[in-house]
Amino acid sequence: MSEQLASQQAPLVTPGDRSVWTTLRKRPLFWICSAALGVLAVIAVLPGPIAGLFGQPDPRACDLSRSAQEPSPTHVFGTDLQGCDIFANVVHGTQTSLFIGLLTTILCLVIAMVLGTIAGYYGGVADRIVSRLTDVFLGFPFLLGAIVVLNSAGTRSALTVSLVLAFFSWPTLSRLVRSSVRTVRGAEYVQAASAMGLTDRRILLGHVVPNSLGPVLAIATTMVGSVIVAESTLTFLGVGLRQPSISWGLQLSTAQSYFQSDPHLLVFPSLFLTVTVLSLITLGDILRDALDPKGRS
């Protein structure tokens, strides 16, 4: 009801400059999130100098005699069980964690967009094949699959871990794309486009994909966080990154058993993870609003 009323009022608004950028520029949240992600990017690129800001540039310079110390002027975030500086560890872990989180999500998104769109738009045999394929992957126990694949892989770098995570995570996203595309495919403007004699490529890229992207992007941004944590699970089981690798996931999984006695072990890495995920989700929401003409004023 209220939407109906709003649409009646709308013609009174004089359309000014309403490009996506103009809309984004006016949102303070957009700048806050971009700044947070910008800082994280700088940390990821230059971990050494940034860790050095507080006098502890080397995350592997550990002193067992100073194990699990509270934050102090020499160790701003305190030290972990091995007596390593937590700030230096968090800063050095940024690169690996962000790399795994973003790469995995982007890979999933690409696979899901392609397969999901094909399945949703063409239906029939293509749909049946893709749907069964996603069912197979969803039915497969993730941990077991990841252990088998990672054990048989010779090298285990952030890249291989990321590939394996993507390999097992795309089906949920693909299902979402498929159902979203199916809804849009039935819309009359898609029928009108095909009645106009437009090519499939044009219809897909011009009408179907932009209109089905909203819910998919929302889920994809939340995925980054879960991927970063999933990496820690693999590492904890000994099939993820190997020591002496540094990642947020690794720190979180070692810290979780000491939460009651030394909460700072868990708090600082999770703080970084939360800021990353929250900024990405908010940025995704703002972008979605800005890309939707109804969200622009």
Binding site: A187, E188, Y189, Q191, A192, A193, A195, M196, H207, P210, N211, L291, D292, P293, K294
Partner: peptide
């Protein structure tokens, strides 16, 4: 061939 559908809201791409 031109075509006009019943529901003008659904027949135009909102974006």
């Amino acid at each position: 061939i031109g075509v006009v559908f019943q529901n003008p809201t659904a027949a135009l791409d909102p974006r």
